[in-house]
Design a protein around this nucleic acid. Sequence first.
DNA 1: AATTTGGTTCGATAATTACCGAACTAAAAA
DNA 2: TTTTTAGTTCGGTAATTATCGAACCAAATT
Lengths: 155, 155
Amino acid sequence: MEEVERIKKQKELIEQIGREHEREGFQPVTARILGLLMVMDKEEYTFEEIVEEMQISKSSASTALKNLEIRGIVEYITYPGDRKRYFRFVSGEIDGLIDEMENKLKRNLVIINQIIELKKDPNSRNSNFLKTISKGMELFIKNLDNLKIAYKKEQ
Amino acid sequence: MEEVERIKKQKELIEQIGREHEREGFQPVTARILGLLMVMDKEEYTFEEIVEEMQISKSSASTALKNLEIRGIVEYITYPGDRKRYFRFVSGEIDGLIDEMENKLKRNLVIINQIIELKKDPNSRNSNFLKTISKGMELFIKNLDNLKIAYKKEQ
DNA sequence: AATTTGGTTCGATAATTACCGAACTAAAAA
DNA sequence: TTTTTAGTTCGGTAATTATCGAACCAAATT
């Protein structure tokens, strides 16, 4: 693939990642900055470079990056004798991703169990269905730990 | 628990489910209707009852219910000699939930593989990290099928 | 000590989205 | 055949959210 073509496709991917992450509750600019830091060959961008590249205001960049940092998705490093922050995509352990999924599942499980507890008729249609869902989710969550171990072996 | 207290808690849960589902891209009204159909003891609501209960316009109810239906989360049934639609929470197979998760994972996997393919340096920091993520996700997706089988046994 | 660099914070505005009301429709009932 | 019921569709408005610009700050440089 030609260089120009490749870079064009990378930009398209940024947009796609952007849309995907908007659906997870990120704001447009934030989602696209994340895409930038994931797909481009340059993997460390300064604040100014991000502002420049994305054509956004400093304030937007500031809040977006703060959000990404708080969520543990992006981090910055500094180099001695250089006051700039170099932002990059956090490449932590895969465990982190599983934990995230596990937490979300657990949150939902709590809600489902609450619904069940508050039902007047414990054998109503929804009660019964929610009970099987609840059991299923518990089983699932247990298996996530096994998966973590399986990953480690694989590597 | 007293009846009044119980119902109060159910209403709170509707709100909570509402917020949780807004983060999945549902609009507020839609998310709360879903909550209503999940938590209340009355598990079949007519269009009019939903309008009444949620204090919303008929048009909002109409679009919200259509959305929930299209997504396969809510369905309606009719009774002979009664023109009204009775809406209720779909209580399908648990497989559906797993499939949903699987599809989302697969979509993300495609994107990640595209990022990797478009990298100039296949051994850059992000390239390497994304490769391990990609492998991990593949393993995960494979395991989902085993989980489906495990559920069936459990029951 | 004044200026520049590398940002942050906050109020205002632009853009988007959610929701409503009015007009409409198809089927059933009167 | 008219009216009522059970909704749907669509254009406009209200509410929300995203982004911006201006003012600001702390540390480094001149």
